[in-house]
Amino acid sequence: MAKKLLKGNHAAVYGAVLAGCEAYYGYPITPASEIAEMAATLMPKLCRTFLQAESEVAAMNMVYGASGSGKRVMTASSGPGVSLKQEAISYSAGSALPCVIVDIMRGGPGLGNIGPEQGDYKQVVHGGGHGNYKCIVLAPNSCQEMCDLTMLAFELADKYRNPAFVLTDGVIGQMMEAVEIPQTVAQLPDKSDWAVMGTAESKNLINSIYLDHDELEEWNRKLQEKYRSLEQNEVRIEEYMVEDADYVGIAYGSASRVLRTTVDTARSQGMKIGMLRPITLYPFPVKEIAALPDRGVKGVLTVELSCGQMVNDVNLALKGKMRSEFYGRMGGNVPSSNELLEKFKELFGV
């Protein structure tokens, strides 16, 4: 297969097109705008829909409409836009609608800046909108994964009838790498049993309103069952030199790229450091992290481009059974690999 030099943002659209995404609804925002731009370029070539919506709120509601109409559909944004989308994300989760949302995180809170950050972890992984729901969250750390995990996001979204996020930061969105483009297109699933398609056979109802308290509780229990199934079956991680590691760094997105270099440097200096990278942030690799103490690991260092959001999930997984440290940068700053190495040395005396 031939490789193409692609921006991460563009690779996500390639993945979406191959996954059979029939509609893109979005709104420009740095550092995610290239996703809309590439969708605007590619979708019309295949007679598919691209629409620049009037707002982030509208874009996500359009996603709700297209998804309920049985189509594979995608939108993308960055933190401030994702905050606005939360309304319809909650509605989509509550109505069990599959869709894909790409979030290219930038600095916050508020307008913040457009540098890379990972401050959306909580609003994406732990809900963000109202109600008891979860979104599937995939965290690519390369342009290749921007393509591959976007495709996977469509599959999982349909399999579980649930919104799926592709969550990464400005570095991965903006950078270019060689991407091997898969040469097949996805098989589109039949959704006529629940979607509304303007036919006599599809006079279904897309909704999230259950006035009766017991009925709503029952529906919530069903959603929770679905999440348990996701947790059971869909956890994905990458391990790098964990096997004999004394200390393990945990990071996702661009922070994991830096951490990988740190691991290489550490190993070249004889330090047994490894890396565990969650590829799925929801479902979170609870078991995999909880197993680290039994594998001889003495401590973990979670690295994020935030004040420490994922580290809470790491600590919940470890339940205090092992030393757990955190190092984060914010405001658009990315730590260097040596900075992380120094942190390992300082914290663990390696």
């Binding site: 629409l51 509601n61 359009m62 709700y64 409409g65 109409s69 559909v73 006079k203 109802l205 897309i206």
Partner: peptide, 27 residues
């Protein structure tokens, strides 16, 4: 006796936009 979307407050035109584009023969 039709297909239905229950929609968020104020967003019916946005949802309807995507519905009519997804299935152009729908009323």
């Amino acid at each position: 006796d039709t297909g239905h979307f229950q929609v968020a407050h104020g967003r019916a035109p946005a949802v309807a936009t995507a519905v009519s584009r997804a299935n152009p023969d729908a009323i």
